[in-house]
Structures are given as structure tokens and as C-alpha cells.
Write a protein that binds this DNA or RNA. Structure first.
Lengths: 221, 221
DNA sequence: TGACATTTCAAACGCCTGTTTGAAACTGGC
DNA sequence: GCCAGTTTCAAACAGGCGTTTGAAATGTCA
């Protein structure tokens, strides 16, 4: 591997700290949010000095902005817009794929999977970066879902109705992340295992499909 | 009024600061959450000295606990468990009333209406008081909804299914509070007016009823 | 009015935060 | 080997936080 021949040397000398800081910052920001995250905590996890953030990024805000910027790219790479579905998938299939991807993204605990958590954090605890997050992180997802729901509702559906139904879909998925401590306390057997996440995706999809079909049927009358 | 004859004297002398602190604290805690709220901000709004919190309540945590305790009582008073419905209301009517009351409670900006906001805050930013909040504030509501959903789903429904559907209902309502900044940015015409809240309640009710009916029908097969 | 208890107040405390400093350590090219 | 440029480091900075202090003001009752 060429990368393995080149990177160690580069890594241990020049950009190692820069890279480690970004990784540690993404973790901490995703875990506790921008405000509760401390630069000391980030630097400690990165094995760097406290002044490293200032030297490499300027300040905490700029570090956060850089983390978000990289998260957009990671999301596109790990969860492509077409969900890996065949070209002519039904809207039902696409909704199922959307909900599943949305949940997996939020609950993915992998090393480079902070995109979903960062977006979700920004929603409930907005920072100055919210405008950028909406533009690059949230709006694209919303548009995708919008198209799916429009198709499901049929031609008679108005914009308002599509919006409301779209929000009803995402709200269900976000709930389990935002209110996880409460859910865990109310239902101790809910451990958010991979299997339980799949069940959740299946429920939200079925619940939403039934709701949208009922909506469409009521409008047709 | 007897209270008007008695209270002014008592108020301006002994318990005025105590009372003002509680009112100001409820406001601030509901607005920005426990962590972001500062003792200085609360005292300023109450027109009291910074040391007043320590003198009257001990510390910030105890003040918060007292605010929550009063909020439970206010909620019972302002939003009675039966929603003011007739004794033999249908589960559909009860679901509509539940959703409406839930939303109104969260978006009520009245002087003694912080219960909904405080509960919602505690869900996304739990404090040491979460156990008490779940026990006294959340669980009772969850049980009420649980009964409604069970009745809607019919006899064949399992506990798991009832739980999932119940959470799908509340998640939709909570979303508009938790993610209000994002919603407002995505849809600038959403100003959360009284009329829009009513429309929201109607949508969530219809969406959920259609979903639950579809669920029940699918299970019957 | 006088004596006692309650309540308020400005000021300071210790702690943690993000940020800055200037010197030390390290790097790569001559 | 040396030196300019880059990166790291311990230490300190200013500012905000919850909390404490002891004196001053206020209220209560004989």
C-alpha cells in the first residue's frame, strides 16, 4: 500500500497533531455538544497540548467549523444520496431506506461516524454554525425526504401537507437520539443495539407509511 | 377577596423575594435550560441580590428542584388528566385532546406555564433531577397515552407495539419544540402562532390515527 | 425605644473556561 | 553542524461561573 509507506512518516511529523485534534474534537462535540465540550478535554484525548487548538485552528469555533465541514464530506461518502437503491425503487422502498440510513447515521458509533450526531446536536443546541448546518447538512436530507413523501401522498397533496408529513417522519427518528436518557429510563430493555435500531427503523417506516396512506386516502374523498 | 387583603402585606415583607426568585427561575430554566441558566440572571430578573438564591434555597440545584416540584402541581391544575372530556369519550377524541394539551403545554407562554418546557428541557439535557422528572412529570403522561393507544390498536396489540406507537406520537410534538430554531429556519412562515399550533395538533392527531389504524389492520390479517 | 432575629447587600472566594505568551524542542535544507 | 522555520510546551491571563462572607439594613416584638 502506497498510503502505508507514505503516511507514517508524514503523520508522525507534520500533520499528526492536526489530524488527531480533528478526530478528538469530532468525538467530543458529537458526544456532549459544542458548549459542554472543552478544549482541554479535546486536547487531552488527542494527546496534544492545550495551546494546540489555538495554533492549528485559531480558536474553538474555527475547530468546530472545520469538524462540521469534514462531517458533510464523510456523510456523502458513507451514506450516498441514493442509499444504494436500484435506479427505479418504489417510494416505499426509498422511505424505508431513508429512515434506516437516518437512524444508522445517528446511532453509528464508528470512528468516522459523527455526522448524524453533530447534526442532531446542532438542532437542539444551535451555535453560530447553524445556518451552514441547515444549508449543507439538513436541507439536502429534507429535500430527499420531501420528494419521497410527495410521491407517496400523490398528486393532490399540497406543499404544506408534504412538509408536515416529512417532519413527522424525521421527528420519530430524532426522538430516540435526543431523548435517549429518558427512553432508557422508561424502558430499561431498550439498549439501542444494532438489532433494536433495525426494529425501530421498521416501526417508523411502517407507522409513517400507514399514516401517509391514510392521509392520501382521506384527501381523495 | 381575602387573598388580596392578606397577600400584599405578606408579599412585600417576608416571602416576596422567595416568590419572585421561583418565578424568575422557572422562566429562565424553561428558556435556556438548567446549565445555561445563571444564578446572576435569575436574581437580576427577580430584582434580588445574587446571594438571595443561597439564602432562600441553599444552592442552584435546590432552587431547580423546587421549581420542578411546583411545576408538577401547576400542570395538574392547568391540564387536568381527563382533559375536560366527557366521561365516555372515544379513544380518537382522547388522542386528539392529548396531543393538543401536550402541544399547548409546551408552547404556552403564559406566566405560570413552564411545566411543558421544563419537562422537554430535561429530556434533551438531563440533570440530576431526571429521575424525579420521569416519575412525576413524564410517566403519568406516558401512561395516559399508553391507555389511549392500547384502545386504538385493539386487543391483539402487544406491549412493545403500544410503546412504539406512543413514542411515535409524542416524538412528533416534541420535535417542534426541541428543533424550533431549525424549523423556523427551514420554513420562515412557521411562527408558532396559536392558530399554527392548532393546525399542528390536528396534523399530528390525524397522522397518528391513520398510522395506528393501519398498524391494527395489518396485525389483524 | 431598645433588643433581637431575619433578610439584604457589595465584595470577594475558588474554580473552570477559552485564549495567549514566550521560551523550549524539533524539523528540514545548506 | 548549523540555523531558520515550525511546532510544542508549561504557565499564566482575563472573564464567567456558583458560592460564601460579614456587615448593613430591615423587620418583629416587648
Amino acid at each position: 500500500m502506497i498510503s502505508q509507506l507514505l503516511e507514517p512518516k508524514v503523520d508522525t511529523t507534520q500533520v499528526a497533531t492536526h489530524r488527531k485534534l480533528l478526530a478528538a474534537a469530532a468525538e467530543v462535540f458529537a458526544e456532549v455538544g459544542f458548549r459542554a465540550a472543552t478544549v482541554r478535554q479535546i486536547c487531552e484525548r488527542a494527546g496534544a497540548n492545550i495551546a494546540a487548538v489555538n495554533y492549528h485552528f485559531g480558536d474553538k469555533d474555527a475547530l468546530y467549523a472545520e469538524v462540521l465541514k469534514r462531517a458533510y464530506a464523510q456523510a456523502l461518502q458513507k451514506y450516498p444520496p441514493d442509499f444504494g437503491l436500484p435506479a427505479r425503487a418504489t417510494p416505499e422502498q426509498r422511505l424505508r431506506a431513508f429512515v434506516r440510513a437516518f437512524l444508522l447515521r445517528i446511532f453509528d458509533d464508528g470512528p468516522h461516524s459523527h455526522h448524524g450526531k453533530l447534526m442532531a446536536r446542532e438542532m437542539i443546541e444551535p451555535t453560530g454554525a447553524l445556518d451552514g448546518v441547515v444549508r449543507h447538512g439538513i436541507r439536502p436530507q429534507a429535500d430527499t425526504l420531501h420528494d419521497i413523501v410527495r410521491e407517496l401522498l400523490g398528486k393532490g397533496a399540497g406543499e404544506k401537507q408534504i412538509r408536515l408529513c416529512s417532519m413527522s417522519v424525521v421527528s420519530q427518528a430524532l426522538f430516540y437520539h435526543h431523548c435517549r436518557p429518558v427512553v432508557a429510563r422508561m424502558f430499561p430493555d431498550m439498549k439501542f443495539t444494532a438489532k433494536q435500531i433495525e426494529e425501530l427503523a421498521e416501526h417508523i417506516t411502517r407507522f409513517s407509511l400507514a399514516a401517509i396512506r391514510g392521509y392520501a386516502a382521506a384527501a381523495r374523498k
